[in-house]
Write a protein that binds this DNA or RNA. Structure first.
Length: 200
DNA sequence: AACAACCTCAACCGCATCAGA
DNA sequence: GTCTGATGCGGTTGAGGTTGT
């Protein structure tokens, strides 16, 4: 896309000690990184960086690989189905972008996070603003929330802040009205420890 | 045409967690 | 059990693009 980014001041960060290059990746850097990852695998990013002869920190290489160079990355246009899934997953999981991304093949956590921040969060705010929830509904929601309070994702030490969008669990998990979209994972998720501890 | 305001998204930062010594 | 370096993740920034005035 040809954006050029000026590197920001480097601060202390273990992985950024020796002055490594920052800013936009060049095609040549991409090529070298992809080559090394192909040969040595996507682990040990510090050594990948040095093997590729890139004056980049491992972290930066990892990010570039994960968000851009990795095979099967889907770029652009998030479909309605994907958007709907993101919304549901966000209500379920909060700001755990990597988990959400894990359920959207080809999408990266960064992409989803960006999409959320500039599209969906607004949408939700808009939707929420004028809505006056019927009292009965509100009380039902509250009751449900209390039921599941402990599971309300305190496990995540951060994030989740925005997930204060109230919702009915039943509604959230009611996938009956939509095109089948490989949703078995929801069931599986709820069967896992993580899923259980959120809703028990 | 010029400028401002807004939008998008790649990349950085800092913290938490993991894994090996 | 503790320390340390590496990795993973979410939050944030800011350059460049787009749209509105």
């Amino acid at each position: 896309m040809g954006r050029t980014k000026r590197p920001r001041d480097s601060k202390k960060d273990g992985s950024m000690k020796k002055e490594s290059k920052k800013g936009v990746w060049t095609a040549e850097e991409d090529r070298r990184l992809a080559q090394v990852v192909e040969i040595h695998g996507s682990k040990k990013w510090e050594s990948v960086a040095s093997k590729a002869g890139l004056n980049r920190c491992g972290k930066s290489c990892r990010l570039r690989w994960m968000n851009y160079l990795r095979p099967n990355i889907k770029r652009g246009n998030i479909s309605d189905q994907e958007e709907d899934l993101i919304l549901r997953l966000h209500r379920l999981l909060g700001n755990r972008w990597s988990l959400i991304a894990g359920r959207l093949p080809g999408r990266t956590d960064n992409e989803i996070k960006n999409y959320w921040n500039c599209h969906l969060s607004k949408k939700i705010n808009q939707k929420q603003m004028p809505i006056t929830i019927p009292k009965a509904d509100l009380e039902r929601t509250k009751a449900l929330e209390n039921d599941h309070e402990d599971g309300s994702e305190e496990g995540t030490s951060r994030g989740v802040g925005e997930s204060d969008v109230s919702f009915h669990l039943g509604e959230l998990l009611d996938f009956s009205s939509e095109v089948p979209l490989d949703m078995e994972w929801v069931t599986k998720f709820l069967e896992t420890d993580e899923g259980l501890c959120q809703f028990s």
